[in-house]
């Protein structure tokens, strides 16, 4: 079990070292075999991972990887977490005190009724499901950003934009209030801006290196 974990950690470490340290990565791999034989593979692998992470800012690919992790962990995943927390608290059906707060923040009027009719309430779980899919989409998007798979990230973005527009249209009909699309819109903006900026920066850096 720990041997498998050690090998996985070692793979991660070697992948993070970058092309200018390829010889060192091969050297570490060879010594890992010795450490694993002595039963110290896991500690050795974690040490190599620490080395690789320490080396990241020192090379071009490392800096780009750091930027991708920073955006994914610092912006896209928190946006997904905010949406998930919203769902937990009843989103897209927002109770009046919270709805007022969100409306004030977004500077939009709220005409949310204090109660919701049974017919309209039927649509709320579907809207919540849409929002849940959006959370899943953001998590996938973060993964593709980390992998620098821009085409898949863009496909997820398009689906996310479509889901947000659908949510806005149905929210307008079902609960007659746009307060419930404020968070998804903010998440969409954060995702679109960060991915577009990252992709542009990556393309620019790669062109400069080439």
């Amino acid at each position: 079990m720990s041997g498998g974990i050690a090998r996985a950690v070692m793979t991660l470490a070697l992948a993070g070292l970058g092309p200018h340290r390829r010889d060192w990565a091969a050297a570490m791999r060879a010594e890992f075999a010795m450490a694993a034989e002595a039963g110290e593979g896991l500690a050795f692998a974690f040490g190599c991972l620490a080395t690789a992470w320490r080396e990241l800012p020192a090379h071009h690919e490392g800096r780009l990887a750091l930027s991708r992790y920073t955006f994914a962990l610092g912006l896209i995943l928190p946006a997904a977490a905010v949406l998930l927390a919203g769902l937990w608290w009843g989103y897209p059906w927002v109770e009046p005190p919270y709805a007022d707060g969100i409306a004030r923040f977004a500077k939009v009027p709220t005409v949310l009724p204090a109660t919701i009719h049974a017919g309209n309430a039927f649509a709320v779980p579907w809207l919540a499901t849409l929002l849940l899919l959006r959370v899943g989409g953001l998590m996938l998007s973060a993964w593709f950003v980390v992998e620098a798979d821009w085409n898949r990230a863009a496909a997820i973005q398009r689906a996310g934009a479509a889901a947000t527009v659908t949510l806005a249209l149905f929210a307008a009909i079902v609960v007659a209030d746009f307060t419930c699309v404020v968070l998804p819109l903010l998440a969409l903006c954060a995702e679109m801006l960060s991915i577009a900026l990252l992709r542009r920066w990556h393309d620019g850096e790669n062109a400069a290196v080439a």
Binding site: M28, E31, F46, G47, C48, T51
Partner: peptide
Amino acid sequence: IHGYDLMKLTGLKSGSLYP
């Protein structure tokens, strides 16, 4: 000296030795 042997000789962990 190989890396792993150097670790044993110096008492350093791989995370300190390789950098």
